[in-house]
């Protein structure tokens, strides 16, 4: 029974954190069609924001505004200098953002060093829940992610900006013709996407290894989730996260971690093959 609860919570945790990680890429790739190979690097910058705040002896929560500012500013610069010239040119975007990712990794390596860093959990220890001990920080993080997603979902469905983004994604010419400044909205969307990636980095920093090359893992898992869940909907994103996270947890529990990893890979390949638009496709 305890084991079932543990696996249940692990599944929930894995879904929630994967959702958090993929969200920024879902915005940038799912809405703007920009395959941002530097997505993981923005997560990495978020984690280093948390590290910087910790090294300065400031409260952990200050890392959130720091990461939003750093990632937002960098995202703005990146959109202005590179991305805006490459919309609807996926391969060029792919190469350009990969180059930017390398620069970001090297930049952090020069500034902070290549070595592993550790960000403390602001809520260490475990909490007894349903008969098992579960890390307190994880439980709070899950709650934060759920609230964040709910708020985002409501905002995206109800707000005028949400409608404008959907309009721009679906029919950019018409969106411009009705008076939507698509260039500005694209930039705002891109900046928001990378800032969300930075936020994910802050929130995950206490749980993961922090080093300049950490971003690659996040790019890969985000890509798998988008393949399975499809682009452009929050439902797809959550479903994709739970399928990827769930397959990993369940297969790893029954067999071993290698099988879990292969399972995730197999599911992603099957989706690419049989349902290239994912479960929830906006088409």
């Amino acid at each position: 029974m305890d084991l079932v609860v543990t696996y249940g919570l692990n599944f929930a945790y894995s879904t929630a954190t994967l959702g958090l990680i993929v969200l920024g890429l879902a915005v940038v790739f799912g809405l703007l069609g920009v395959m941002n190979m530097a997505h993981g690097e923005f997560v990495m910058l978020g984690a280093y924001s948390a590290l910087t705040v910790q090294q300065a002896g400031l409260p952990f929560l200050l890392a959130i505004p720091l990461a939003l500012i750093v990632c937002g500013a960098l995202g703005w610069l990146m959109e202005w200098s590179v991305i805006r010239h490459l919309y609807r040119r996926p391969f060029d975007t792919f190469l350009a953002t990969w180059g930017i990712a390398i620069l970001m990794r090297k930049g952090v390596e020069v500034t902070f060093g290549r070595e592993y860093q550790s960000v403390d959990q602001s809520l260490p220890g475990t909490v007894s829940l349903l008969g098992i001990d579960y890390p307190a920080y994880r439980l709070v993080l899950m709650a934060v992610i759920v609230v964040m997603f709910a708020a985002l979902f409501v905002w995206y469905q109800r707000s005028n900006t949400g409608a404008r983004i959907k309009a721009m994604v679906q029919n950019p010419d018409l969106a411009a013709a009705v008076g939507i400044n698509t260039a500005r909205l694209s930039r705002a969307t891109f900046v928001t996407g990378v800032a969300i990636a930075g936020l994910a980095g802050v929130l995950l920093a206490p749980l993961v290894r922090v080093e300049p090359y950490m971003g690659l893992d996040y790019l890969l898992s985000s890509f798998f989730i988008l393949v399975v869940g499809g682009l452009g909907t929050i439902e797809g994103l959550i479903t994709g996260s739970s399928i990827i996270g769930g397959a990993d947890v369940i297969i790893s529990a029954i067999f071993d971690k290698t099988a879990g990893y292969l399972g995730v890979l197999a599911i992603s390949i099957l989706f690419l093959w049989l349902r290239p638009d994912g479960i929830f496709s906006r088409r």
């Binding site: 409608a163 959907k166 309009a167 679906q170 029919n171 010419d173 018409l174 969106a175 411009a176 013709a177 009705v178 008076g179 939507i180 400044n181 698509t182 260039a183 906006r282």
Partner: peptide
């Protein structure tokens, strides 16, 4: 830019892709 003309008071109904299907 197109959006500027719309803001200045030009309404436009195109021949194709006339509405935002998902909205």
């Amino acid at each position: 830019p197109a959006h500027g003309r719309a803001r200045q008071g030009m309404g436009y109904a195109p021949q194709e892709g006339v509405v935002f299907d998902t909205l």
